[in-house]
């Protein structure tokens, strides 16, 4: 009978030398990891390279995966580090030049147009946030990562994780309000 292996059991197998099991984990997670990076960088090429980097690091650091680790938290810990390393030498995160331009050119009238406007403005506000807050928003709002997984990922307590997500959302709302006037 076919059984579905959990991420954790597959990763444990990878750690024990069955590197080919990583292909299943790649199939399951490469899209969401890509989306995480795209929302962090707004750049497709960088995001695709970062996905490659994450799976390379999974193989390289497979011994550090412990049996009581939740795979998803461990995966995003690696993803955060990969993203952080990529931009550590740069002076700032992505700048949303394109969006400001887009905002000036879209028509302010009409529901669809103003929806696009708002979407562009919010994207801009998100991209201009500090990296740690942007991460929290992307993980909690897009990846529906529950507070206990975020807490595990950041190595903090669960109530602290909730507070941080809330604070990040307030910040985002404030800068979004500023942009939308």
């Amino acid at each position: 009978m076919a059984t579905i292996s959990t991420d954790e059991s597959l990763m444990a197998a990878v750690r024990e030398g069955a590197s080919d099991e990583l292909a299943i984990l790649f199939d399951r997670h490469h899209q969401s990891v890509y989306e995480f990076f795209f929302r962090m960088t707004a750049d497709r090429a960088s995001s695709e390279s970062l996905v490659q980097e994450v799976f390379y690091r999974i193989l390289k650091y497979r011994d550090t995966f412990r049996d009581d680790d939740r795979f998803i938290s461990w995966l995003y810990r690696i993803a955060r580090h990969a993203h952080h390393d990529m931009f550590r030498k740069a002076s700032a995160g992505p700048v949303c030049d394109d969006d400001e331009e887009q905002m000036r050119t879209v028509s302010p009238s009409g529901t669809e147009a103003s929806r696009k406007d708002r979407s562009a403005m919010l994207r801009c506000a998100l991209l201009n946030m500090p990296e740690d807050q942007r991460e929290l928003i992307v993980l909690s709002q897009y990846h529906q990562m529950p507070p206990d997984a975020i807490a595990e990922l950041l190595d903090i307590e669960v109530p602290e994780a909730k507070v941080r997500v809330h604070r990040a959302m307030m910040e985002l709302r404030d800068s979004y309000r500023k942009l939308s006037g």
Partner: peptide
């Protein structure tokens, strides 16, 4: 709701694979 409407540029899954 607006956050969810922000599009993600599709990735080249074949090349990544």
């Amino acid at each position: 709701a607006v956050l969810r409407s922000i599009p993600v540029e599709p990735c080249d899954t074949n090349a990544m694979r």
